[in-house]
C-alpha cells in the first residue's frame, strides 16, 4: 500500500451489530434528556438499547440474539 494515499477516518462509525463510534468532543443527550459529555478521543454510543451505562456502550450487544442487534 502506498504511503502517499489518503485514508478514511470518519467522525461517526456505525459498527455492525454494535455501537456507534463517535470521534471528538461531543455532548450526547440520552433518552431521558440527560446530557453526557464525551471523555475520550473516541466514544461508543449504545445502539442496542441494552447497555447499563447508557448512553455509552458496555458490550452488552454481544450477548443479544442477532435479530436484536443493531444493523
Amino acid at each position: 500500500m502506498s504511503e502517499a494515499e489518503s485514508y478514511d477516518h470518519p467522525d461517526v462509525v456505525l459498527c455492525p451489530g454494535g455501537p456507534m463510534l463517535l470521534r471528538g468532543d461531543h455532548v450526547v443527550q440520552d433518552s431521558d434528556g440527560v446530557a453526557h459529555r464525551t471523555t475520550r478521543p473516541v466514544s461508543a454510543v449504545c445502539r442496542c438499547g441494552k447497555s447499563q451505562t447508557k448512553p455509552w456502550c458496555d458490550g452488552t450487544h454481544q450477548v443479544l440474539p442477532a435479530k436484536l442487534r443493531p444493523a
Partner: peptide
C-alpha cells in the same frame, strides 16, 4: 474498563 474497552474492542478489531 467497561466503558473504554467497549470502544477499544471496536477499534482493535476493525
Amino acid at each position: 474498563h467497561v466503558e473504554a474497552d467497549a470502544v477499544h474492542e471496536q477499534l482493535a478489531a476493525r
